[in-house]
Computed example of a mutant assay.
Amino acid sequence: MSDTVTTVGFDADDTLWQNETFYRLTQERFADLLADHSDPDHLMERLLAAERRNIGHYGFGIKGFTLSMIETAIEVTEGRVPAHVIERLLAEGREMLRHPVHLLPGAEDCVRQLAERHTLVLITKGDLLDQERKLAESGLGELFDGIEIVSDKTPATYVRAFALHGDGPSNALMVGNSMKSDVLPAIAVGAWGVFCPSRIEWALEAAPAPEGAERYRRIETLAELPDLIREL
């Protein structure tokens, strides 16, 4: 067991299970619905701008994404979007909220291994009901000593979570697919930050890697994490 790391924090979406893939598939259907009003590239630019504006109002997750699609549809049609398109977008959002959970390769084995020796805490942002549903369906819930579903991930988030569920940030490690939300704020408060990139990156979560930071590491899959922690 590592003497350095006593608490391990995990991100959820696109770290433990697939998430962004379903957003991209919905965006493709969104582009098809609005094909007569906007080319796909321009439409995605407008949608991303709407998401950026709306995060402070709606937070992260499917509900905010659905509302941003509707807002974008209204904008690009200059208020003439047909009611059936709005109805279809709402249906797409509900379908995303019902989508089964698909664990990523190595996720379950990694969590089970680390649960034997470390305090585990899930630190995820998004819609409360949706994140609780996904955790329950994942079959991993009982392996975590703490669950933190937050509106955003800031340095203060990690100070509080690692103090509540462990020995503080200096003895903690956070792993996730978002450099902006999972790695940088964790390192900022003295924890280890481990970047595990996903196949698809959301533009709003991108940030430069802290190359040279003493407590920064990168892995390609969660299967590498137990060995990494033993080597710290």
Rank of each mutant, 00 (worst) to 15 (best):
V5A: 06
T6G: 07
D13R: 09
D14M: 10
D14N: 07
T15V: 11
T15Q: 01
E20L: 07
E20Y: 06
Y23V: 03
Y23I: 02
L25A: 12
R29I: 00
A31G: 07
L33M: 15
L33Y: 02
L34M: 08
A35F: 11
D39T: 10
D39A: 06
D39G: 03
M44G: 01
E45W: 10
R46Q: 12
R46L: 08
L48C: 01
E51D: 14
I55P: 01
G56T: 06
Y58C: 08
G61A: 07
G64V: 03
I70W: 00
E71P: 03
A73W: 00
A73T: 01
P82M: 04
H84D: 05
H84F: 06
V85A: 10
I86H: 00
L89Q: 00
L90F: 01
G93N: 00
G93M: 00
R94C: 00
H102N: 08
L104G: 01
L104S: 03
P105S: 13
G106S: 10
A107L: 10
E108H: 04
D109M: 03
C110R: 03
R112H: 14
L114V: 06
H118D: 15
L120Q: 04
V121I: 15
I123M: 12
T124D: 02
K125V: 07
L128I: 09
L128D: 12
R133L: 06
S138T: 13
S138E: 09
L143W: 12
I147T: 11
I149M: 12
Y158T: 08
A163F: 02
D167E: 06
D167T: 15
G168T: 14
G168S: 13
A172R: 00
L173E: 10
M174H: 05
G176P: 05
M179Y: 06
K180C: 07
P185M: 11
V189N: 06
P197S: 13
S198V: 03
R199W: 04
E201N: 06
A203S: 10
E205N: 08
A207W: 09
P208C: 07
A209S: 07
P210E: 12
E211D: 13
G212L: 09
Y216F: 13
E220P: 04
L222S: 04
A223H: 11
A223G: 05
E224C: 15
L225K: 02
L225P: 02
I229G: 11
E231I: 04
E231K: 11
